[in-house]
Design a protein around this nucleic acid. Structure first.
Length: 270
DNA sequence: ATGGTTGGCATCCAA
């Protein structure tokens, strides 16, 4: 069924994926293998941890992928990967503040805008980095309101660094009020979602135990499934209605030298 | 109550 109303995307289908690589240079073979196997229209990568001139652009291009990158030395860094050209790329907040913030990249693929974010972790409640996260979230909300409207063909994907509900982390009682599961984070996430974003994963799968991130610091966290669902794919209502699947691919978390996150992919029939 | 690991870079910070 091709699209009827609400938006203008011309591509009949769209597979969108997200992955926090925790160093694109270390994870390059995992990413290239995954791309070849799953052939998404777009992969959004976070924590590339590399300056733009050291990003392995040619490795992607040699495999037939376009890339758009926004990175810095050591930390953060986001990228978009696509078979089709990535158009109208924007990086960061573009408001003159926080020029070193490499946490946002947007681009248009097959006439759908992809917003890829690496939301700040926050480190410790009450810390300077926590305040940064608390300020970053509403600032991102302003970016969305200024540049988009809910009827646009736009998707928001990435490492959100917040578990939305107690079903989205392994020990909600222990983590209640902690980083990633704090009322102030939930209030700010709700403000963002009230714009019109819908969590595509929860259209298809309910309950606990479905995670995208398992900490390195907890021994055997993946084997014991002590994880968090903090990597999300959000769609406005008219695209959420056209989302036909959203799945977590746990397999790459079990590879040699894995990231601490794994891939999430959503399929839209437009 | 606290530790455990990984990546990048410089011997410690961020996650």
């Amino acid at each position: 069924m091709y699209r009827e109303a609400g938006g203008s995307a011309k591509c009949p289908a769209m597979k969108v994926a997200t992955f926090n690589a925790n160093s694109i240079r270390v994870r390059l073979p995992i990413v290239l293998d995954w791309l070849a196997k799953h052939e998404p229209d777009v992969l959004a990568i976070q924590e590339t941890k590399v300056e733009d001139d050291k990003f392995p652009v040619s490795d992607f291009e040699d495999a037939g992928w376009n890339v758009a990158i926004h990175g810095m030395k050591m930390r953060q860094g986001v990228a978009l990967v696509s078979r089709s050209p990535i158009l109208d790329v924007h990086r960061g907040f573009e408001d003159g503040n926080w020029p070193d913030d490499c946490r946002i990249i947007t681009g248009v693929v097959n006439e759908v805008t992809i917003i890829n974010t690496y939301v700040p972790n926050g480190t410790q409640v009450g810390s300077e980095k926590w305040d940064y996260k608390m300020n970053w979230l509403p600032r991102f909300g302003k970016l969305v309101r200024d540049r988009f409207k809910p009827s646009d063909d736009v998707l928001w994907v990435g490492d959100i660094n917040i578990a939305p509900t107690e079903d989205d982390l392994f020990d909600p009682k222990r983590h209640a009020g902690g980083v990633g599961f704090h009322p102030d984070e939930h209030a700010r996430l709700k403000e963002l979602l009230d714009w019109g974003w819908h969590d595509t994963f929860r259209k298809f799968t309910q309950g606990s135990g479905h995670y995208t991130y398992w900490e390195f610091v907890i021994p055997k966290s993946f084997e014991r499934n002590l994880g968090w669902r903090i990597d999300h794919i959000y769609a406005p209502a008219h695209l959420y209605d056209r989302c036909v699947s959203c799945e977590i691919d746990r397999e790459p978390r079990g590879y040699e030298r894995p990231s601490d996150h794994t891939f999430v992919m959503a399929d839209f029939k437009l």
